[in-house]
């Protein structure tokens, strides 16, 4: 591609794209090594070509590009071998064809980020069906693949205004299926990272659709068993919402109190961390609406026999802003916690 005359560049580019539609079996690592090397070299050339040259992306090339990408990435993901797969403990099954797949994803990114890229042309091929299949790939066990998918979907969301509502709706469906049906989806954290940047960019006043997403998806997401895998991203999304619209604070805190973990201390520590992040940005006028039920829960945490829970709750008093809120409202907060503090200071084992 580097050596060909400009006039023949596009024709050769299309041939290389078609060549890269051939798929190889990487489970048999000795099979067809020559063919695998030819495709790897061709993919490298394609990445290089789109990344460095201008004028490569003319209209006829778009369908060939999308076809090559689709043939390579859209596939049925392997079933999780062991049903007891614990994402926190077990090593994920990595994608065997990653040597090729990575280059296809790299090529896709360079294509989207090229200064010549025209969404108006690409939207004929990057349509709702394409995006739906892209979202299904987020369930891949391979974290490297999910990382690329996250960046790609972030770019697609940014560049295709007409697909934004559809992408949000499909993310909704994935989360709801994850919460209420399967409790199994590997890409929740990655999707929440993208949504964090979307929430961050919401126009004010917030649309009802977005508030429904907070109440019907983000808050119930806290109830899922594998919360620890995506809690940081989830808390970030929640705080982004409150920085956009402080009037949602009471609803969020009451939701967290409703879903407060009863038997999982690890989750309780996460909830306390999230509460502190929320209190960091809370308006005093919102604080007074939730202080009573909130500090009753904090009091329960202070008296928890699990010292990490008790410690994390007491750590709130290390936060100057929270301290100032407590001092301004001590007539309500003190009665809620003093009895527990006094008892714990006498009886707690740690």
């Amino acid at each position: 591609l580097k050596d060909v005359a400009v006039a023949e560049l596009h024709e050769l580019l299309c041939k290389k794209l078609q060549q890269c539609c051939v798929l190889f079996d990487f489970l048999d690592c000795v099979a067809d090594l020559k063919g695998k090397e030819i495709k790897r070299a061709a993919l490298n050339e394609l990445v290089e070509c789109v990344a460095t040259n201008r004028g490569v992306l003319i209209e006829p090339v778009y369908p060939e590009i999308i076809k090559m990408i689709s043939v390579n990435i859209f596939r049925t993901l392997p079933p999780t071998e062991n049903p007891e797969f614990d994402p926190e403990e077990d090593e994920p099954n990595l994608e065997p064809s990653w040597p090729h797949l990575q280059l296809v994803y790299e090529f896709f990114l360079r294509f989207l980020e090229s200064p010549d890229f025209q969404p108006s042309v690409a939207k004929r091929y990057v349509d709702q069906k394409f995006v739906l299949m892209l979202l299904e790939l987020f369930d891949s066990e391979d974290p490297r693949e999910r990382e690329y998918l996250k960046t790609i979907l972030h770019r697609v969301y940014g560049k295709f205004l007409g697909l934004r509502a559809y992408i949000r709706k499909q993310c909704n469906n994935i989360f709801l299926r994850f919460i209420y049906e399967t409790e199994h989806f590997n890409g929740v954290a990655e999707l929440l990272e993208i949504l964090g940047s979307i929430i961050n960019g919401f126009a004010l006043p917030l649309k009802t659709e977005h508030k429904h997403f907070l109440v019907r998806v983000l808050i119930p997401l806290h109830s899922v068993k594998s919360l620890s895998i995506f809690h940081a991203q989830l808390a970030y999304c929640v705080v982004q919402f409150l920085e956009k619209d402080a009037t949602l604070t009471e609803h969020v805190i009451r939701g967290l109190l409703k879903y407060w973990p009863k038997t999982c201390t690890q989750k309780e520590v996460m909830f306390l961390g999230e509460i502190e992040e929320i209190l960091d940005v809370i308006e005093p006028s919102q604080f007074v609406k939730v202080q009573e039920p909130l500090f009753k829960q904090i009091a329960r945490c202070i008296s928890s026999p699990h010292f990490q829970v008790a410690e994390r709750a007491l750590y709130f008093w290390n936060n100057e802003y929270i301290l100032s809120l407590i001092e301004d409202n001590c007539h309500t907060v003190l009665p809620a916690i003093f009895g527990t503090l006094y008892r714990v200071s006498k009886e707690h084992w740690n």
Partner: peptide, 30 residues
């Protein structure tokens, strides 16, 4: 009380994963 950002707790790192925001109204040149 003036809103002060909390001191970063030693074991609660700031979110390293925050991606660039995408503004709702206009076509963001991402």
């Amino acid at each position: 009380p003036q809103k002060k950002k909390r001191p970063k707790l030693p074991n609660f790192p700031a979110p390293h994963f925050a991606m660039p925001p995408i503004h709702e109204d206009n076509l963001e040149k991402v």
